[in-house]
Design a protein around this nucleic acid. Structure first.
Lengths: 196, 196
DNA sequence: CACCACTATGTCAGTTCTTACATAGTTAAA
DNA sequence: TTTAACTATGTAAGAACTGACATAGTGGTG
């Protein structure tokens, strides 16, 4: 029964539940901002698609493709949909999440404050950019709130998480930059120009 | 020069920069709330310690241990500290982060709203619990703010991120639960008791 | 006294995932 | 016209990681 499908398998099923796709398209959809919380290389996706196929959770039809092989358009089966539905409500383990920036922060006391500030400014720019994108997307989704039971509900919910995540993250980066400037300023006040 | 040390290697060095430890202790320290952003099993840590040793980034002294083998107390070398310092300010790639709960959310439109609500309530409890822990720790760290250049600065900075992260996450879970109840209420008003 | 949790190191099999390579057609820009 | 980007599938080597097993002493609980 439970043949230990890896999480990536369910990510693939989640994409196929919305639209039939080739392996290549699945990889692309996973890279899009609303869904980039479980990305993978196309090679891994092809590997997992073969497994899902063997378990009867997906099927495919072929069409002439650009390369030497035929193009395979995958679709989720009834069994796949059932497996996905069951998985969705199983509580995930409270993800200890691997976060390289926080790891660097943990070791930040060892490093050069100026270089650190630069790094956090770079990170901040990234977060602000994504926040702006999410806010624009949010404004358009808010106009007519999608009903539960439609894929757009999933989009909205994931987008909401991304939005508040980027906001938290940007705030934290700003706090870090401020902390670093505080630890710098007192000792070398005059060496900085007065403007911001 | 750059022999492609995996991120876990730097996580280990970050721990050793604070205190000499056995492999077992490193695994334990990585599980602790202030540092649980790059956990690993002890077997992986032992493997990576051997590599770091081969590269001269750590050294060790032995002491009688409980098991058949001797206990090895690892410490970071000058070279290790230098490598760690360099790595800290290198910008990490904007982590696409794998987040199982958000992935489930993306597919949430397929599932049973009641079961989903239950899952988010469970997640919310976890976030609230950790938030309370972090807030208590924050109160004690705030009294005397650690200076840059001391390990406690790293603690404070990582804690600050954890704190605002849990807050954002708990808020989002509450928003989700509210959304789910909205989508449930209108269609089946009478089937629910009037109390909250 | 039995059992469990903790300290401590290590091996090994297997899974997951990344990176590079290989092939090949279309379309758009330089 | 060449070059690059995009579409599309696949293999294969190897890195990263997990989980189970193995060994063995100490200390606490029932």
């Amino acid at each position: 029964m439970s043949s230990t499908i890896p999480t990536l398998g369910f990510a693939i099923l989640s994409v196929l539940a919305r639209a039939d796709s080739t392996g290549y398209e699945i990889a692309g959809r996973m890279r899009n901002p609303v869904a980039r919380f479980w990305t993978a290389s196309h090679s891994q996706i092809h590997t997992d698609l073969r497994r899902l196929l063997a378990e009867g959770l997906v099927g495919y039809t072929t069409a002439p493709g650009p390369g030497p092989q035929e193009k395979k358009i995958y679709s989720i089966t009834g069994e796949g949909l059932e497996a996905l539905r069951e998985w969705v409500t199983e509580p995930p383990r409270p993800q200890p999440e691997r976060d390289e920036l926080v790891l660097k922060t943990y070791a930040a006391w060892l490093a050069d404050p100026a270089a650190l500030t630069e790094m956090f400014r770079t990170a901040l720019r990234g977060h602000e950019k994504r926040l702006a994108e999410y806010e624009a997307a949010w404004a358009s989704v808010e106009k007519d709130a999608p009903a539960f039971g439609t894929p757009r509900f999933g989009n909205m919910a994931a987008l909401r998480c991304g939005l508040t995540y980027e906001r938290h993250r940007a705030d934290w980066c700003r706090w870090m930059i401020d902390q670093l400037s505080r630890s710098l300023k007192p000792s070398c006040d005059a060496s900085y120009p007065s403007e911001e």
